[in-house]
């Protein structure tokens, strides 16, 4: 049986519409589920107490989430700040400075780094990194350990997306730069980076998403003490670690409060996406 062109189009259109609707519905369903699960504690305790309570001790009725929000944002911010230049510079080296065999080997290594499961990073952090930091400044499990682990974990994301976006730069740009007699560094600064801007920006958004959502590795190296850190050596607990650590044992309001952690996390990510969207509209595509 052969379809007429119009009916084939019609079939494709509706298949795509359905698939699109499913993808969108999943996100909405998750948000609705989070809100429904969080609702009991939001009604009984109120939103304000999640900001004003003296501490996070859900078993005793204290629900302050702010220290954990700070922990999440600081660990994320620190690792993105370090990983972004590192990743972009390593991609520049790979594309424009390294001999071909080294560049290929280097790319494979970075891909390998991307494939290591997060528990393995966490375990390595716990038995190697944490004791090292402990010698520097006890207790070792700290914001610094979290930032270090996250940096290693998100580095491949930014390095590989940067590498890919450099590859996509039309060779006529580079030939033009060469014919103008630009130096290699001049070409990179003046031509390559501006031309690859949108790709690099996507990489930063992706790595930020991975940093904010990472759970296991952070759970193992950050110490998980609920407090607003005053130095890099203070232990912190992230929102994701909070859910993973306590969900299996939580009941009633405690359980609901963990869903509120999830909601706050969703909110933080949504805010990031909105900010990223606004910047990219103005700076990159505008």
């Amino acid at each position: 049986m052969s379809l007429k062109p119009q009916s084939a189009d019609w079939l494709l259109l509706w298949t795509l519409r359905c698939l699109g609707a499913i993808a969108g519905a999943i996100v909405i369903a998750i948000v609705i589920f989070l809100v429904l699960e969080a609702l009991p504690v939001l009604q009984q305790v109120g939103i304000g107490r999640f900001v004003t309570d003296p501490s996070w001790h859900p078993a005793e009725g204290f629900y302050n989430l702010m220290p954990m929000l700070w922990g999440t944002l600081l660990a994320m911010g620190g690792s993105v700040l370090i990983a972004t230049p590192l990743g972009i510079l390593s991609a520049i080296f790979c594309q424009y400075y390294a001999p071909k065999w080294l560049a290929n080997l280097y790319r494979r290594l970075i891909e390998l780094l991307a494939g290591i499961p997060s528990v393995v990073y966490g375990f390595w952090g716990l038995v190697v990194l944490v004791p090292l930091i402990n010698r520097l400044h006890p207790p070792g499990t700290s914001l610094l350990a979290g930032i270090a682990i996250l940096t290693i974990m998100i580095l491949p994301t930014i390095a590989l997306t940067a590498d890919a976006s450099f590859t996509k730069i039309p060779s006529s740009y580079l030939l033009g730069a060469a014919s103008l007699g630009l130096s290699r560094w001049g070409t990179i600064c003046g031509i390559v980076l501006p031309a690859a801007k949108s790709g690099l920006f996507t990489g930063v958004i992706l790595e930020t998403g991975r940093a904010i959502g990472e759970t296991m590795a952070v759970l193992m190296v950050c110490g998980n003490v609920v407090q607003t850190p005053h130095s890099l050596f203070d232990p912190i607990r992230t929102l994701t670690a909070n859910i993973a650590l306590e969900m299996a044992y939580a009941l009633g309001n405690h359980r609901s409060a963990l869903f509120v952690s999830g909601l706050v996390l969703m909110g933080a990510i949504a805010l990031l996406v909105v900010i990223a969207e606004a910047i990219s509209q103005e700076e990159i595509y505008g």
Partner: peptide
Amino acid sequence: LENSQIKADVVIGDNQQGIKTVAGNPNA
């Protein structure tokens, strides 16, 4: 004790994580 009275430096999940933390830190 109440849990809020405890001043912890590390909070852990299961026994194994506790043992690994103490094994890796002579002052824990």
